[in-house]
Amino acid sequence: MSTLLRALRRKILTPGVSATSLERRGFHKKNSDARDLLEMIGRTFLEGYGHAVGERSIADAEARLESVLRQFRGFAYEGAAMGATVLDALPGSGGRRLPALLSGQGRHHAYMAYVGVGWAMARLPRFLWPDVATTDPMLRWLVLDGYGFHQAYFHTERYVRGQFEGPGLAWGAEPASYHRHAVDQGIGRALWFVAGTDPERAADLIDAYPARRRPDLYSGTGLAATYAGGADEAELRHLAERSGPYRPQLLQGAAFAAEARERASLTVDHTRLATRVLCDMDPVQAAKLCSGTRPDVSAGGDVPAYEIWRRRIAEELVSRGRG
């Protein structure tokens, strides 16, 4: 494909950067620093998306992705995974871009990449969704997490202010009863963005949902507060206080974010701060806790290994006096 055609493909397939404006989204503006952070995350996501659909190969895209600032590089890979998934769904594409990303440098960003696949699913018709059999049996639930984030981010009135839950997604991952939990974890991450990184606003949004959904929502918010950042020490402590009985899930999300950044060698100061304040650990310790509690994915049963993992992390944090 010529350079001109690749540039045209990128222009046609890549969403406009104005879609990430807090003003356009109607999200809370805590202050200019928080606004700039969240909008930079959105721009970087779209930058990664553009590289995945516009470059000659995934190797060329990765060369661009690796030059993104460490603080934002994971979001670039998230966007790249969305772009690769969308491109793979097009007729004649061969479906090779996402596998190449996940087996290349993207393997270090697998958590973010699977979330990006969920973004693509939210934009594609169901018959073009990726085959669940090709996804990691442990991390595939992050795809539905990404789907939930997308829906809350772009359909905020319905999914956030209206607390819409929707039907279960016929995606094939078992057990189907867990689908809504994974989606809610993504909605919880999005609430950190909708709240403009304001913990009081985020907690108010979560507490408006039915109590049965709050554990997953607080988990997602804890992950976003730790991975994306935007809160100082006092705000993080307030978030922990507001989480009340859902504090173990909030801390689980924070530890999971530390694991994701450590795995990709992208740990930054705000991750260290959030992990210390919320989990009373440094990111290395939190990552080791996560890796040390990871269950055997082949066990089967009514509860997916991914959820067993999340519960083990939360229980371990509580047993150590963090929760």
Score class of each variant (00 low, 15 high):
residue 39 E to M: 10
residue 146 G to D: 00
residue 240 A to N: 05
residue 176 A to Q: 13
residue 300 G to R: 13
residue 292 G to Y: 03
residue 196 G to V: 11
residue 67 S to D: 15
residue 120 A to Y: 00
residue 313 I to W: 01
residue 293 T to I: 02
residue 216 D to T: 08
residue 199 P to L: 13
residue 166 G to F: 07
residue 245 P to C: 02
residue 170 A to M: 08
residue 71 Q to P: 04
residue 296 D to Y: 04
residue 262 E to I: 10
residue 36 D to C: 12
residue 298 S to W: 11
residue 208 A to R: 15
residue 45 F to E: 01
residue 71 Q to H: 09
residue 116 G to I: 05
residue 73 R to L: 06
residue 7 A to N: 11
residue 62 E to G: 01
residue 165 E to S: 12
residue 295 P to A: 04
residue 286 A to V: 10
residue 112 M to T: 10
residue 99 P to V: 03
residue 241 E to A: 14
residue 105 Q to A: 13
residue 274 A to G: 01
residue 127 F to M: 07
residue 10 R to S: 14
residue 90 L to C: 09
residue 235 E to N: 11
residue 289 L to M: 08
residue 269 D to L: 11
residue 192 W to P: 00
residue 118 G to R: 02
residue 258 A to W: 00
residue 107 R to K: 14
residue 116 G to C: 05
residue 314 A to V: 04
residue 170 A to R: 15
residue 151 Q to Y: 03
residue 172 G to V: 00
residue 63 A to Q: 15
residue 121 M to S: 04
residue 237 R to N: 09
residue 67 S to Y: 10
residue 121 M to Y: 03
residue 252 Q to S: 07
residue 168 G to K: 13
residue 99 P to H: 03
residue 72 F to T: 04
residue 313 I to E: 00
residue 268 V to D: 14
residue 303 V to I: 13
residue 119 W to K: 00
residue 156 T to V: 01
residue 11 K to H: 13
residue 60 D to S: 15
residue 160 V to T: 08
residue 31 N to D: 15
residue 124 L to W: 05
residue 131 D to H: 14
residue 127 F to S: 10
residue 231 A to N: 05
residue 43 R to Q: 12
residue 284 V to M: 08
residue 246 Y to W: 15
residue 297 V to H: 02
residue 240 A to M: 03
residue 301 G to S: 06
residue 31 N to I: 07
residue 46 L to Y: 02
residue 231 A to K: 06
residue 290 C to S: 07
residue 73 R to K: 13
residue 289 L to E: 08
residue 321 G to D: 06
residue 176 A to M: 11
